[in-house]
Design a protein around this nucleic acid. Structure first.
Lengths: 113, 113
DNA sequence: TTATTATACATTGGCCGCCGATGTATTGTC
DNA sequence: GACAATACATCGGCGGCCAATGTATAATAA
C-alpha cells in the first residue's frame, strides 16, 4: 500500500530509535532492515536518516563508533541511557496519539473502524 | 499529553473528513467538537482548518451551503460521494500505516509495546 | 580488464503541511 | 459601552522530509 509521505512526519525518529533498541547498527543497515521488516512500507531515504542520526548524536541520544566490518568502514550507532528514555517517551506519545486518532474515527464513522 | 505537532501531519484531513461523516458541520463547530472528543489532544487551528476545507471544496470532496443559524451566518460543509470515498481511503491508509508502525516498534522493542 | 551494481556515508535546495499572528464582523454578556 | 465569544479568512514563516547529487570502495558481471 502506498502511504502518503506526510503521514510519516514525526514518526521517523521513533522508527529509528526502535531499530536501535535491539543493539548498535549502522545507517545503511537500518534502511535495509526497516524496509524488510515493514514489507517496503517504510523506505527511508539517506537524506532523511543521516541528518536524524547526526542530530541524535549531537543531542546525546546515541553514541557512534566507526570501525571496519565486512571489508567496510561503518559508523555504528548505539542508544545511550538518554536515548533509551527518548525512545520510551516516543513510544508512549505514539500510542497515545494513534489511539486518539482511532477513537475519533471510530466515534464519527464506526462503520469504517 | 502533549503531542509533537509533526505527528499530526498528514492525519488532519482524515480527522476533518471523519467529523463530516456524521453530517454537515461548520468550521468553528468542527474545531470545538474535535477538541472535546479528543480531550483537547487535537486543538486544530483556524489557519489549519479553513485552508483544508477550501481545498476539499475546490476538489469536489465537500459542498458548502451558507445560511443563517442560531443568529449567525455559517458555512456548512457536507461530504460528497467522492468525499466519502476519500474518507474510506484515508481510513484504510491510516489503519495500514499505524499498524505498520506498531509492528516495527513491537518487533524491535517488544517490552515497550 | 573494465563496466556496472551494491554498499556506505554525506549534504543541500526545495517542497509541502501546519500554525501563529492578525484581520474583520457580529452576537451575547457584564 | 466594554469585553468575550462566535465565525470566517489569509499569509508569512518554520520545520520535516526527500530528490538529487556527490564521494569512495567492494563485489560482480561482461
Amino acid at each position: 500500500m502506498k502511504i502518503d509521505k506526510s503521514l510519516l512526519t514525526g514518526s521517523t525518529t521513533l522508527l529509528v530509535l526502535s531499530l536501535l533498541a535491539e543493539g548498535e547498527k549502522y545507517g545503511y543497515q537500518m534502511i535495509q532492515e526497516l524496509a524488510a521488516k515493514s514489507d517496503n512500507t517504510f523506505q527511508m531515504k539517506e537524506g532523511t536518516l543521516y541528518p536524524i542520526l547526526h542530530g541524535l548524536e549531537r543531542d546525546g541520544y546515541v553514541t557512534v563508533s566507526q570501525r571496519w566490518s565486512g571489508g567496510r568502514q561503518r559508523r555504528y550507532y548505539r542508544l545511550t541511557g538518554k536515548g533509551r528514555g527518548l525512545l520510551e517517551d516516543k513510544v508512549k506519545e505514539w500510542k497515545f496519539f494513534s489511539g486518539k486518532v482511532g477513537d475519533v474515527v471510530a466515534s464519527y464513522c464506526p462503520e469504517l473502524a
